[in-house]
Simulated assay, not measured.
Amino acid sequence: MKIAAVQFLATGSTKDNMQACLERIRAAAENGARLVVLPEAASQAFGTGRLDTQAENLEGSYASALRAEATRLGVTVVAGTFRPADTIERDGKTINRVYNTALITGPDLHTGYDKIHTYDAFSYRESDTVKPGTQLCTFDVDGVTIGVATCYDIRFPEQFRELARAGAKVIVVPFSWADGPGKLEQWRLLSAARALDSTSYLVAAGQARPGGQEQAGQDSGPTGIGHSVVVDPTGRRLTEAGYGEEIIYADLDIERVAAVRKQLPVLG
């Protein structure tokens, strides 16, 4: 199975981001990808304004446009977006929270995974504006079960092990990882570890680093560090992006998953 991980830098405009996503989906499909993974927050970058003002359900213009193009091209697409969730009162303010949703769409498929582990860490509280999801999610592409996780979920190994136990042989991870001292090292370690301890392929697509390599290593907030990656079930990186915008590809040998799990039976 050929997959593509799309790394780009989203803006604050859902309309502009939709066009950017469609262009990259077409490019990936033309290069033979059957599964195209785009970053978390692909519809609206973090730090660009209130998320609730552009949040849409899966019947909205952003999700519908990606669905139509994925269906036309015969590919499956995963892309980060935001959906309306609930209204809460906090510190005297009324907040319209959203779900941080990984849209999953293509021929005869249109659903989403709501990020379970909100990024309440390093003095940031995603749960103030994002309602956590509660359900694991898998879907099928060409007879292969695919699991889904989003960004901060990667710090919770049991989610990845449960997806593997549910039949996932590939786990896709849209992300928008904060930069800062030691953060790239943490990302590279965690992405390899989650592939290894779930004995699955991991396909992670992230936001490019604002400012590129010149800003690398500086605190950025949750606005991207690049380094999209494909990792095999033994934790070996098959391909990895840098800080800028690009699309990376890999041909996944799905039969290798069963062989690795036989040699390393850690899911029992």
Rank of each mutant, 00 (worst) to 15 (best):
A29K: 10
E255A: 12
G12I: 04
V148T: 11
Y201C: 02
T48E: 11
A216M: 06
A250S: 15
K183Y: 07
R125E: 10
K169V: 05
V75I: 06
Q186A: 11
T48F: 05
L58Y: 15
A65P: 09
D108A: 13
E59P: 00
V77Q: 04
M18G: 11
T105S: 06
D16I: 02
I154P: 03
R256I: 00
V78S: 12
Y119M: 13
I248M: 08
I247E: 04
S228C: 06
I146A: 05
D153I: 03
R24P: 02
S13Y: 12
G92P: 12
L264S: 12
F46Q: 06
G221W: 00
L252N: 07
Y62V: 01
E40M: 05
L66P: 05
A29G: 13
I154M: 15
A55N: 07
L238G: 03
G74I: 13
R83N: 09
G180N: 04
C21Y: 00
G147K: 07
R188A: 12
V260T: 11
A70E: 11
H227K: 05
A79H: 09
P132I: 06
A65V: 01
V231S: 03
G143D: 12
R125A: 12
R209M: 13
D140R: 12
V170H: 03
A241C: 09
E245D: 14
A241V: 03
E245R: 10
E23H: 04
G221D: 05
K183C: 04
N57C: 00
A241E: 01
G226M: 08
D108M: 08
L35E: 07
A27E: 09
D142E: 15
Q159W: 02
Q44F: 03
G106F: 12
V230M: 01
A28V: 09
V144Q: 06
A193M: 13
